[in-house]
Simulated scan of single mutants.
Amino acid sequence: MVSRSIPNALTIAGSDPSGGAGLQADIKTFSALGVYATNVITAVIAQNTRGVVAVEPVSVGLIRTQLDNLLDDVEIDTVKIGMVASREVAQAIAAALARRRPRWIVLDPVMVAKSGDRLVDDEGLRAVRDILVPLADVITPNLPEAAALLGTEVPRDLAAMEAMVGDLAALGAPYGLLKGGHLPLDRCPDLLWVPNATRWLDAPRLRTRNLHGAGCALSSAIAAHLAHLPPTHPDVEQAIGDAKQWLLQALEASDRLTVGQGKGPPNHFHAWW
């Protein structure tokens, strides 16, 4: 086998014509962090920085064909899974990745856009929870997504976040980051869980509107950092922390961009431009 110094990453996600979220955000993030980006599209979404106006899911047959065709040819080191709209799509993704298991799978359970628009129905939500969460190495729900996965109320304070983590871990992913940005605090505390332990990862709350696709960028940054880890004694916690720090810098540099009239994107290439 030919030795590769640049890992290959795959994003399985919906599109965003404005380039700030979904597939496009993942490809930018992978590229910025030194991994080669490949993609399988699950839905075509008509949206901009102000909101979503239409969602057209890609047929499960075409998703399956995209996956099989790509994975038959390209050795994938790390996968980020984003928007999954149906049980059939979740099953197709799980089957394809089980046959050609990559080193790392990161699941961002995308259900609601930053604009508040719902992107998946209840059946799609259950499919993500029952089929894809147990397949993942790392999941990255925000508070509304975590509440949807568990069928509970959205946490309103840090104690409620802590109480939720055990139930999230029990869904099957050994690592996860419960994102606390929805709490009305002057900080953005995320709660990391690893096998048999939890730890708070804190960050300042930035005064920016440019949060469009921030969750997509974080999960794909985690996938990229995981791809660079050595095969022996990989430090997953460090990879997640590094990804969070990268996103903070991307948000701090986001005002260098002028994209749309609503919620702008992070500056994925802040270290390059």
Score class of each variant (00 low, 15 high):
D157P: 05
Q24N: 08
T42V: 06
D130R: 10
E123H: 12
P195C: 14
S86L: 07
K28E: 01
S5W: 12
V128T: 14
G215P: 06
A239H: 03
L62V: 07
D130F: 01
T65D: 06
P102H: 03
M164E: 07
V74H: 10
T198F: 08
H225C: 14
A43G: 13
G124P: 15
A214S: 14
D190P: 05
S31K: 05
R205D: 08
L185C: 08
P266D: 02
S115K: 03
I222G: 05
A148W: 06
L183V: 07
V58G: 00
A85G: 15
P189M: 02
D68H: 12
Q24K: 00
E153V: 08
L143N: 13
T152F: 05
G124M: 07
V165A: 13
L201S: 03
S219I: 05
N69Y: 10
R156A: 15
H182D: 04
L125G: 11
G151I: 02
S219A: 13
P7E: 05
D242F: 13
I222D: 00
V112N: 01
L149W: 14
I240F: 02
K80R: 09
E162D: 08
R205I: 12
P17T: 05
L62F: 15
D186A: 11
H182M: 02
W200Q: 04
A227V: 07
Q261A: 15
V44W: 12
V52L: 12
A113D: 10
L135E: 00
T38W: 08
L23P: 14
R87H: 03
S86H: 08
N142M: 09
A148L: 09
A94P: 09
I139N: 05
A169P: 13
A221L: 07
L201I: 15
I131Q: 01
W246V: 13
V55I: 13
A203I: 12
N8L: 01
H182I: 02
A37R: 03
K179A: 03
G51R: 11
V165R: 09
A239F: 04
Q47D: 06
A197Y: 11
T232S: 02
G180V: 11
P265L: 02
L248K: 09
G51N: 06
V74Q: 09
G22W: 08
T29W: 08
L10A: 13
E123N: 09
P230C: 04
P144Y: 03
M83D: 07
